[in-house]
Nucleic acid binder design. Structure first.
Length: 724
DNA sequence: ATGGACAATGTTTTT
DNA sequence: CATTGTCCAT
């Protein structure tokens, strides 16, 4: 099979370029995956590279799997030894192998977002810091950002007293992690990058091994990933990256599209290949996409040319409210299916926030149509799943205190707050982990530690310790599935969930599903199972099977394509999201998000919004997304309502003022608008979430950084507008 | 220690 | 509004 057959000239150039740094700028639908897989195959087949010397990294397991299948399809069985996986997965393997250089041992567990937040809470409690002032979520965000920037606690930049405190929490957090023999997501990258940076022998070893390094979605790399790649390519220098700055949508996770430019300046002799031919969409869709993305700065212009030519116009629809928006989508889908114009599986409905899926789901349910949902209340995030996984993790790694605290009283076994604190305290005093202390206590009164506990507190601990010790003993001879069954049985989990109720039954079904997944690890063992469970992503859970419409966030849509796409909630405040209003960089990312959504569509695109949307329990009038105004009218069927702000300016301001009879002018125009930054004498700085006219006054909801959400009347509140 | 009732509190996106 | 935390009676 000719690896270059059927490729256009640019693709061909991209596939055959391999020496030194190569940057492939791949527009949407330009055959990016094809180029990557053929590149890998080309190096092995044409250049005689050993698979062992190749490293290919992606962001999701799904992308990795797809690449593996396609490369295998091109080469047959010649891919033994190829390193192909996600950044996180590759790092895990490397860290386990090189654990001797690190402050934890090779059977470390991986802490997911939920664990990370629990650990921050733990750190706050240990340091006796108020959770109200230092919200675990925001502290965790700061720590995560630091880690992505390769900043250790001692490097944490301090610009305020708050930073000082956060730095201390970070230090404690890191301490707790190491004590738990655990690494969080960010650590996987951070430790790998640090290890390669500081231990030359390790760096040499991998840098010499990987003659060819290929990277997918390069625009989404963060500093840690970037440095990691630099180190790994430091010997051979063959670093091949594929990306599209316009599709960078993970800034909040530390991704920095400027890595693309950084790459070009760090490697001056980089070869750049531009892929502009689009094989996916019609020209109308691409024209709309370009119109949306063009206002962004910091990008280089890219033509999107539809190989398929022109098709139909885009459809714009404005619904009265979010309910009828959902109804419209479902109605269009069922009509098109009934007319035989499309298959249910051809449709995708995309939205900015997960919360928007609910009404859509209800509409589908109401119409009796099946659908599938990507992400949102994910399987692995469900409580029962986390409980069972928590047990397995504890058995696997007694140092995992987060898992221990999670499961020690589930089902309730008289080990509440007080007893848990005592356990932790005694463990600390004896310089052992809480898990080890439990094992110790399983011996009952034979254990010297037994009487360290006050009154009867040791008794329930000893009871649980015995169960735990039993599992630990059984661990070497049991498969993950058998171990899980034994635990479920010992703790009476099915009874605890109460399968006679609907909710309990559905929870138990999730446990059974987890059982089914565990059954696939009979050979690979518990470590592999726990690792995969931790590193699975939303996009990985999307099964191709089943021809039904897909509901997903715009983020989850990246890398996918559908014949017919609906993008809903095209309103200011939703898309672009209100939280991005005050940050130009964030606003550009909102544009990219829409761009990603638009370019998923192959044949037809529906842009939908609602005149009223319910948020915080109130239906509020909306304004159309400002991005809609950038799409030329001649690409659209249906016209976009004039934004109220524009309307207002046309009417005379005088008409909108009146006197309330008491000599004070009541508000008839809104002085405040969503997104404004304001300052209050007492509550400090805040941001206006929304404002509306009510009973002759203006009512505003403001989110204050210090004190949270407040609703107040504009005529009474003493507010200064800091920024519009 | 537990469980239920009420209050507060908060909504972006997720490897 | 819907989830999460807190208080209080057992």
């Amino acid at each position: 099979m000719d690896l270059l057959a059927g490729l256009n000239p640019q693709q061909r150039q991209a596939v055959t370029s391999w020496e030194g740094p190569v940057l492939v700028l791949a527009g949407p639908g330009s055959g990016k995956t094809r180029v990557l897989t053929h590149s890998i195959a080309y190096r092995i087949r044409q250049l005689g590279a050993r698979p062992y010397s190749l490293l290919a990294v992606t962001f999701t397991n799904k992308a990795a799997r797809e690449m593996e299948t396609r490369v295998a399809g091109l080469l047959g069985e010649q891919i033994q030894g190829l390193t192909l996986g996600t950044f996180h997965g590759v790092c895990v393997r490397l860290l386990r192998r090189e654990a001797e250089h690190l402050p934890f041992d090779s059977n470390f567990v991986i802490f997911d977002a939920d664990d990370q937040e629990r650990l921050v809470k733990q750190a706050l409690r240990d340091l006796d810091i108020d959770e109200k002032l230092y919200r675990p979520g925001s502290v965790h965000g700061a720590i995560s950002r630091a880690k992505n920037e390769l900043l250790l606690p001692e490097d944490f930049p301090i610009l305020s007293y708050r930073d000082e405190v956060v730095r201390r929490i970070y230090e404690k957090y890191q301490d707790l992690l190491i004590r738990s023999n655990g690494l969080d997501f960010d650590d996987l990258l951070l430790w790998t990058a640090t290890l390669l940076d500081q231990v030359p022998a390790v760096r040499e070893k991998y840098a010499r091994r990987y003659e060819h390094i290929l990277v997918d979605e390069f625009q989404d790399t963060n500093m840690a990933q970037y440095q990691l790649l630099r180190h790994l390519s430091s010997y051979h220098g063959n670093l091949y990256v594929v990306g599209d700055v316009d599709q960078s949508i993970y800034r909040w996770r530390g991704a920095d599209y400027r890595n693309v430019r950084r790459f070009e300046s760090d490697f001056p002799k980089v070869e750049v290949v531009l892929l502009e031919e689009n094989y996916r969409s019609t020209q109308e869709i691409l024209d709309a996409a370009m119109a949306v993305i063009t206002p962004n700065r910091n990008r280089r212009h890219k033509e999107l040319r539809a190989v398929r030519g022109t098709g139909q116009k885009l459809q714009f629809y404005e619904a009265y409210d979010d309910r009828s928006e959902a109804a419209y989508v479902v109605d269009r889908i069922s009509t098109l299916v009934a007319m035989g114009r499309a298959d249910p599986g051809d449709f995708a409905v995309m939205y900015r926030t997960n919360a928007q899926s609910r009404l859509l789901e209800e509409a589908f349910l109401h119409a009796g149509l099946p659908y599938k949902l990507v992400g949102a209340q994910r399987f692995y995030g469900r409580r029962e799943v986390k409980d069972v996984v928590g047990y397995l993790r504890l058995v696997y790694n007694p140092a995992d205190e987060i898992s221990l605290l999670r499961v020690v009283n589930v089902p309730p076994r008289r080990i509440g707050q007080k007893t848990q604190a005592a356990l932790r305290q005694q463990a600390e005093r004896a310089r052992m982990s809480a898990g080890a202390m439990l094992l110790e206590l399983s011996r009952g009164e034979d254990s010297p530690f037994f009487e360290m506990f006050k009154g009867r507190t040791a008794a329930p601990l000893a009871v649980f310790g015995q169960l735990y010790a039993g599992w630990r003993r059984a661990l070497p001879e049991l498969t993950p599935l058998k171990l899980m069954d034994r635990i479920l049985d010992d703790i009476g989990y099915e009874t605890y969930l109460d399968t006679s109720s609907d909710e309990g039954l559905s929870r138990w079904e999730n446990v059974l599903e987890l059982r089914r997944l565990a059954s696939e690890y009979e050979d690979r063992g518990l470590m592999a199972f726990l690792e995969d469970v931790a590193l699975i992503s939303d996009q990985d859970t999307l099964d191709e099977a089943g021809s039904v419409p897909t509901l997903l966030t715009l983020h989850a849509a990246k890398g996918l394509e559908f014949p017919v796409v609906f993008i809903v909630g095209l309103e200011d405040g939703t898309l672009p999201h209100i939280r991005s209003f005050d940050d130009p960089e964030a606003m550009e990312e909102e544009r990219r998000l829409l761009y990603v959504g638009v370019t998923r569509a192959k044949d037809a695109l529906y842009l939908v919004n609602a005149q009223n949307r319910t948020a915080f329990g109130y239906a509020e009038p909306t304004e159309p997304s400002r991005f809609l105004g950038d799409i030329p009218d001649d690409l659209l069927n249906g016209s976009v309502r004039l934004r109220r702000r524009d309307l207002l300016s046309r009417e005379s301001a005088a008409q909108l003022r009146w006197d309330d009879g008491n000599g004070t002018a009541a508000a008839a125009t809104r002085k405040y608008a969503a997104g404004m930054k304001v300052r209050h004498e007492v509550w400090g700085d805040g941001m206006v979430l929304n404002s509306r006219l009510q009973d002759g006054d203006e009512t505003i909801d403001i989110f204050f950084e210090q004190v949270g959400l407040k609703r107040l009347a504009a005529s009474l509140a003493r507010l200064d507008i800091m920024e519009r």
